[in-house]
Design a protein around this nucleic acid. Structure first.
Lengths: 109, 109
DNA sequence: CTCGACTATTCAGTGTTACTATGTACCAGT
DNA sequence: ACTGGTACATAGTAACACTGAATAGTCGAG
């Protein structure tokens, strides 16, 4: 991908991760793999972990340490009520943005 | 608006401004007013000017100083070929992002 | 049993971007 | 002159993603 995506991801990557977690609990390595799978080829691992710590400190997710069969223990994150609320706010903001952008795209004026 | 929009705008505001300029040339004050009009209520003036200087230095726009009837001369920006190309790349990146997000929104998985 | 491969997390340092808060300057109408 | 609207610029700050590396556990191959 390119630098454009990197900058565009600011603010949205957080929503993406929260949206993933709203479907089911997940841990960092898993989320990174998921993103890579979906075409976000150059999201650094470190980025995801930093983001997870951030949303944990803001109280949007609950964390549980789960032993793994093949590696160090996983930190499994799940969306809590506050996170759910924040995610809904995220979708509203996202809708607002996409609407404006769509207008610009077709109208160009 | 809120903090969420602020972060989401990083990377997209640039595209928004370029998209505006693809419709017709415009100057900073005008662009700011346009944005405010469209609901981007708390985009600071300074932000737009800084952005314009950035894209000018990257060679995406041409600039012309035009005297104004009511104030200091305007710096009118217009999209050049390189900017057009960059804008198209922006739309591709944007499409990629919206597709993923839309999938996440409906699927939640 | 050691080495490499894969799993899994963490962290220090950097660059980009938008915000806040000013400051400068020009013009019109009173 | 003074005020208000027009128009641009800039210094300092905060947030976020990236780079690059370090740390650590498990497993299979040689």
């Amino acid at each position: 991908m390119g630098k454009q995506v990197t900058e565009m991801l600011k603010g949205t990557l957080e929503g993406i991760v929260l949206a993933i977690l709203s479907g089911r609990p997940a841990y960092g390595y898993e989320i990174t793999a998921w993103l890579r799978d979906r075409g976000f080829t150059d999201i650094a691992e470190g980025t995801v972990y930093a983001l997870l710590i951030r949303i944990e400190q803001r109280g949007l997710v609950d964390v549980e340490k789960v032993p793994s069969q093949k590696g160090p223990p996983r930190k499994v994150y799940s969306l809590n009520a506050q996170g759910q609320e924040y995610l809904e706010e995220f979708w509203r903001t996202w809708s607002f943005l996409t609407e404006r952008l769509e207008q610009l795209r077709v109208g160009g004026r």
